[in-house]
């Protein structure tokens, strides 16, 4: 029965393929990035909510490390 619905929409499969593609490409890039990302950066990011005052001093020195 749902064939009727599908046939009524011209090129309906484009929607699905397009969206899947967007999905897939984005995630591939995200995963690649995830494996290559600097560990000290992640460490600094995850400590942002903690010890706000101490954190201040590391703010910019951390950047120099990973560059």
């Amino acid at each position: 029965m749902f064939n009727n619905y599908l046939q009524a929409i011209e090129g309906v499969d484009i929607y699905a393929i397009f969206s899947l593609l967007v999905f897939f490409v984005f995630f591939v890039f995200l995963i690649i990035w995830m494996f290559r990302v600097d560990k000290s950066y992640l460490k600094k990011m995850s400590s942002l909510p903690l010890d706000e005052k101490e954190n201040l001093n590391q703010n910019f020195s951390g950047d120099k490390h990973d560059e």
Binding site: F26, F27, L42, K43, S46, L50
Partner: peptide, 21 residues
């Protein structure tokens, strides 16, 4: 949660991946 436990989040990488997903 990190505030209350006084320790950073387990995995920042995971937080990024699961956010976008």
């Amino acid at each position: 949660l990190p505030k209350a436990a006084n320790r950073p989040i387990y995995s920042y990488k995971l937080s990024i991946v699961h956010f976008w997903a």
